[in-house]
Amino acid sequence: MTPYSTTTTPARFLLLGDSHAGPIGRAAKQAGIPFHGGPIGAGREFTAEFFDVREDDVVFRKPEADRYYRGFLDELGVSGLGGLTVPLVSTLGFSAHFIATLENWQAYRVRGEFPPGFLSSRLFDGIVRAMTRGALDFYRLAHELGLRVLAVMPPQRVPEHSDPEVFMAAQDTIRRALLELGTEVVDLRRRSTDETGFQRPELCETNDTIHGNLAFGRMILADLLARGL
């Protein structure tokens, strides 16, 4: 996990996320786009409750994550999340492969298959929202504090221990939930996938089953810049 820091030029955004934030930070650093932030932990640490509220700020319950976060705020010259004057770009909550872990969903299969309509049902939607309640609370608080928030969808890559059907459906549930909160969602699936619906090989990190590479980070950065960041 590598936090990032750029020059003394005023930052355009705060990047806060899991390991999927890495390629975004590397792309911005290479392009000379001023920002502060980076990964603060693993995706599985940012689904259920993972922070406490302190006035207009959050305190991450994992000390390492909070230490990184405090460092980023210091670099931006603010004391809390509510003091941000730049947009917040985040990948938190979008590690859908953790939600899609195979054993989590065996009980819902009948003779190896999900019942018709299950993955688009209110039950499935409710389960996924409950599993990501901490992330949704984080984005909700950010909006209550008046921040502009952009959430970046994950690379379309599913490791062997995860269910591809659940991965695809779960990320759509998370996307809908964030849009309901007013979050801008960076969704590059039409440009980053092939006919299978999964990430194009040239956008995948080599010798890795989950992450996007620098080229994918550049695509995300280009989208962010097109949005005025």
Results as ranks from 00 to 15, higher is better:
S121H: 03
G71I: 10
V152S: 07
I127L: 15
E113M: 09
L145C: 04
C204E: 04
E202P: 01
T101H: 09
I40N: 07
I220E: 04
A42C: 04
G71Y: 08
D56C: 03
V89M: 11
E160F: 14
S19P: 03
S192K: 01
A100K: 01
R189F: 11
L221P: 05
L102S: 14
G25A: 09
L81I: 05
F98W: 14
L145Q: 07
P3H: 13
R122E: 15
A42G: 09
L84M: 10
D57R: 02
T209R: 14
I127M: 14
Q199D: 03
P164L: 09
I174A: 06
L14W: 01
Q156T: 03
S120M: 07
G83P: 09
G22P: 01
L179P: 02
E75L: 13
V185N: 06
V78T: 06
P87K: 11
T8D: 11
E75R: 15
L84C: 10
E144W: 01
V53I: 15
E55P: 02
V89S: 10
S79T: 15
T47A: 05
H161T: 12
V110R: 12
E160Y: 13
L136G: 11
L214F: 13
S120V: 13
A42N: 08
P154A: 05
R109I: 02
V58W: 00
H36Y: 07
D52P: 06
T132F: 01
K62N: 14
M153N: 09
G146P: 11
P39I: 11
V149I: 12
R200Y: 02
L150C: 13
G126T: 11
Q106G: 02
L203Y: 12
G41Q: 10
G32F: 07
G41P: 08
M168E: 12
D223N: 12
L178Y: 04
R111F: 07
G32D: 12
C204P: 00
V89F: 08
L15A: 12
T132K: 00
I33T: 14
E64Y: 14
D163N: 15
R122Y: 10
V58E: 01
S120R: 13
D223T: 07
H143E: 13
R227D: 03
P10Q: 06
S120I: 11
A177G: 08
G117W: 00
P154S: 04
L214I: 09
G182I: 10
A170D: 02
H36W: 08
L203E: 06
L81F: 05
L229H: 12
F198W: 13
R189W: 10
L203M: 10
I210Q: 11
R191T: 00
G82R: 10
L92C: 01
G37L: 03
G182A: 15
D137G: 09
Q30P: 00
A226S: 14
R109A: 07
A135F: 02
Y68L: 08
V128A: 04
I99C: 04
